[in-house]
Design a protein around this nucleic acid. Structure first.
Lengths: 254, 254
DNA sequence: TGCCCTTACGAGGTCTGACCACATTGTGGA
DNA sequence: TCCACAATGTGGTCAGACCTCGTAAGGGCA
């Protein structure tokens, strides 16, 4: 039998698609927000079946690189960089991540980010931060609105830090923490104090006081940690039989 | 026309699969290393097509939760927790992550981890670290072997830190940095100094000197950073309008 | 007896093409 | 003028056949 073996299509189809799109992104052909060709057409141009193309796209979508909208099209992700939304939650379920561990990670990272933002922040960031602080004070009586600006405030700091990787990590952790956080803010009674704290952080960053910005952020987050009951439990006998808090399936809905 | 609309099986099939497997993991039915049923069989039991099941599995595989082996079966991931291997690299290409940023993230995280390891490390970790240090000294003349134990050393510290989330993040960053790192080690001439440094870090951790462990690790990594030419470039004039410049390629390029 | 090669089978990988579901657009009727 | 509905384009799902890879079982040769 003729073992012609013509073209070696390199690796598996999935990776073929991933690498192709990756190169399109790397050479600038595809930019955040761009739409890729329809599946049928794209598949034909790549000489692979639509099913295989979809596998590859699914892979990219899972990691947050692409965003698929039913009935509309498939796009390159835009907005703040972030790892797959569900990834932390999923991997956490697999390895038994605890809430306090997520919060600890957040404290460490965001404190540093705050310090970096103080060192590297530009005028534009200072302006944006000032605005969010003002909005927070204005929303003191509305926990829901307050939370929005709180999130924005922290996100701006991430951007100001000049390290998108750390920013992306924080973004991922924050979204995983979002649910429980929303509940806490609902019953928070002293948003004013929180707002004051944010203002102080802002001032430290604007004044390029890295050390101070770092410490204030850490202090702020530790308070939040306590408010949400996410302190690290006392060192105790391995009692992993804790009441597992069922995470909402809807995750970061709306 | 009979628009019966019987049971709405919740959301899309993909998420249906993901949530199903997720719940199997959460309630302990599925544990790391376990094999899931064959696709055909599993699909039938879930009342969905094999294609849809595969989409869901692909999603989980992309995030490192599951591992698919052609001709063998599909398994729940085991080994050190980690986000999708390609994720950082891919998202990095999309958002123009720089190598120095990855290294900066690594320094920040791993220094803290080292401090935490000093606080929380157990005997078992100390033993393992000691062993790796010994192996490093033994492999001083073999860069490749040396790198293996170097990697292991840092991984043990991650575990000893008691925060699997931070450990997973580090694991992801490290693997993204691996390529360029391997090249550097090839031409490294002074592995002995590096080994000495690791030993000092080990001693700090064993002695529960958190601050010292933190500083030593930071110092160690900054030296490595310089050795690999991954310092943060000088601050340069730059318009805030994001001049769409061709994204610099990360050193991990091909 | 013991090893190696071949075969068989189980499992994932890919293809095809049809059809379903969702969003947007355009057009005709009220 | 405005709303309802149909057409269109795009992703989502399905079905079943076939391909490829790994492993284990079986048989032949030394």
């Amino acid at each position: 039998m003729p073992r012609v073996k013509e073209e070696e299509p390199t690796t598996h189809r999935t990776m073929q698609v991933v690498n192709h799109i990756r190169s399109l992104i790397e050479n600038g052909t595809l930019q955040p927000g761009d739409k890729i060709p329809p599946e049928r057409e794209f598949a034909r141009s790549l000489k692979i079946s639509r099913a295989s193309l979809r596998t590859g796209i699914g892979y990219l979508a899972a990691m947050g690189v692409m965003k698929v909208r039913h009935g509309v099209g498939t796009f390159v992700a835009d907005g703040p960089p972030e790892f797959g939304k569900a990834s932390l939650s999923l991997i956490g379920a697999l390895h038994g991540f605890q809430s306090w561990q997520m919060f600890e990670a957040r404290i460490i990272l965001e404190s540093h980010l705050s310090g970096l933002a103080a060192e590297r922040g530009k005028e534009e960031h200072h302006t944006a931060l000032a605005e969010e602080v003002a909005e927070m004070f204005a929303a003191i009586s509305s926990p829901t609105d307050y939370l929005i600006h709180d999130l924005l405030f922290h996100r701006i700091i991430s951007q100001a830090s000049g390290n998108p990787i750390l920013a992306a990590i924080i973004e991922t952790i924050t979204s995983a923490l979002y649910d429980s956080r929303r509940k806490t803010v609902e019953r928070a009674t002293d948003l004013r104090e929180s707002a004051e704290m944010h203002r102080e952080i802002f001032r430290a960053i604007r004044g390029h006081k890295a050390k101070e910005a770092h410490n204030l952020m850490e202090q702020h987050l530790r308070m939040a940690q306590i408010a949400q009951g996410m302190e690290r439990p006392k060192e105790r006998k391995r009692s992993s039989a804790a009441p597992k808090s069922r995470q909402a399936r809807t995750a970061t809905a709306a």
